[in-house]
Design a protein around this nucleic acid. Structure first.
Lengths: 245, 245
DNA sequence: TCTTGTTAGATTGTCGACAATCTGCTTGTC
DNA sequence: GACAAGCAGATTGTCGACAATCTAACAAGA
């Protein structure tokens, strides 16, 4: 038989496209944290009715980068230092788990893909395209999760990644200078190709710790000024209440 | 000032109520895996238009217990042995992390809440209410995650829990006999009150392992018969594709 | 001046109808 | 009989309009 695999056909619903557009706008920082999303205005701009737009927003709310308050509006989530800290500490655990799981599954295809993504990061770095740099770096990092053959882990990591990407983008936006970070990933890639799993896990943990401190400091500095969308605080999250008691 | 705190007002949107109704139906197994959700029919039964229903469905899709295929329909996710395995192995990691984090945060309020939830499980067990038993057991288990003071962890665990609850409910449904499991949780609760964190972590891991094997065997037996909704396979999940290359 | 009630405007939530798409059946042709 | 084309029927996706709710400004009264 012919050994040609077709890629799945593109999503042809407006909803999916809206989701992609909005997500991109949020993750690149074009929509700022705390900002309110006016349905009517966005719908007009996109030449779309409010129905698919609202459905798209619901998805992003569940994805964790929007938050909705009934009859008040839907807002981009606020970035608190605690959130970043939480996300990072969990990410470390997930990384360790992912490496453990994917370690015996490494093969030539893995190494090739690893190099490919590493190259993409270097490319973006050369081009001084910081947005793309963040994106590719996270994709490089995500390979271990994709390769771990655990769909739940992958979903979890992708949710985490959305926020991390948003945090990084904001950080980059704040200070306009591009990160030099030329070959930060070299060690990471080398260790993933090596034979010492423990070393790879340790490096993943420390490597992350690195730019984390910087990011955290930035978030703390943001915390001072009062965000105009400050009332868009935690809503929902109380699924577990013991209703019958 | 008066020291009375009011609980937040109930969500008064139809959407929220629909979400709750649908989630309950799915998690208790009233809606079976692979089953298609006909929008028109459900909307009529609930006396609601399709708009809020569809928004509710979008939320549950992102929550991971429904899956949607454009122009084909929305289905309850299929339960594969691999999914259960994945969820459990990740859950073990999360438990360990949660215990580590909440350990220094334990106080009297924690112990009280622990006892309260433990009592709820025993109550449900006495009443032979298996659905409620599953629910309360998971709530007991969830306390460590709620107490870990990490919102991202909590969200992640709640997503996982949804599936686990669904799996358990299906399992219970299959074999009608209620689980004896009278005091399975006694040791768990005792260790969480004790001073040996490592022991608590170890127990959490092993205790889970217990009913896991049973559940997994059941899932494997299901895998034989062809589900009528079999084509409702993984859709989406490919957010990470490198679009510009 | 402070509080409370009222009202107008804007925004979100919901509805019913229409358009686009899929599925299965029928029909026609070889 | 096998197969492709085409035609209902049903279902999902989208639209425009209406209802419910919130916000802020303003007026009335203590």
């Amino acid at each position: 038989m012919g050994k040609l695999d077709f890629s799945p056909i593109a999503d042809t619903t407006r909803r999916a496209e809206i989701v992609a557009l909005l997500r991109r706008a949020i993750l690149t920082g074009q929509l700022e944290p705390g900002q309110k999303l006016n349905e009517l205005r966005i719908a007009e701009q996109m030449r779309v009715s409010r129905a698919p737009l609202r459905e798209a927003m619901r998805e992003l709310v569940q994805e964790g980068i929007l938050t909705s308050i009934p009859y008040a509006g839907t807002f981009v989530i606020d970035v608190t230092a605690k959130d970043i800290d939480d996300a990072y500490s969990l990410n470390k655990v997930l990384d360790e788990f992912a490496i453990e799981r994917m370690w015996p599954l490494r093969d030539q295809r893995f190494f090739d893909e690893l190099d490919r993504r590493h190259e993409a990061v270097k490319q973006a770095t050369r081009n001084l395209d910081t947005t793309r740099q963040i994106e590719t770096a996270l994709q490089l990092h995500g390979l271990i999760h994709e390769w771990a053959d655990n769909s739940v882990l992958l979903e979890t990591w992708q949710r985490l990644t959305s926020r991390l990407q948003m945090y990084f983008a904001l950080h980059q936006r704040a200070r306009n200078e591009p990160v030099p970070a030329e070959d930060v990933h070299d060690t990471y890639v080398r260790l993933l190709k090596g034979s010492d799993m423990g070393a790879a896990q340790r490096h993943a943990r420390e490597h992350i710790e690195l730019d984390f401190e910087e990011l955290l400091a930035y978030a703390r500095s943001l915390e001072q000024r009062t965000s105009k969308g400050a009332r868009a605080d935690r809503a929902g999250l109380t699924r577990n209440r013991p209703e019958g008691d």
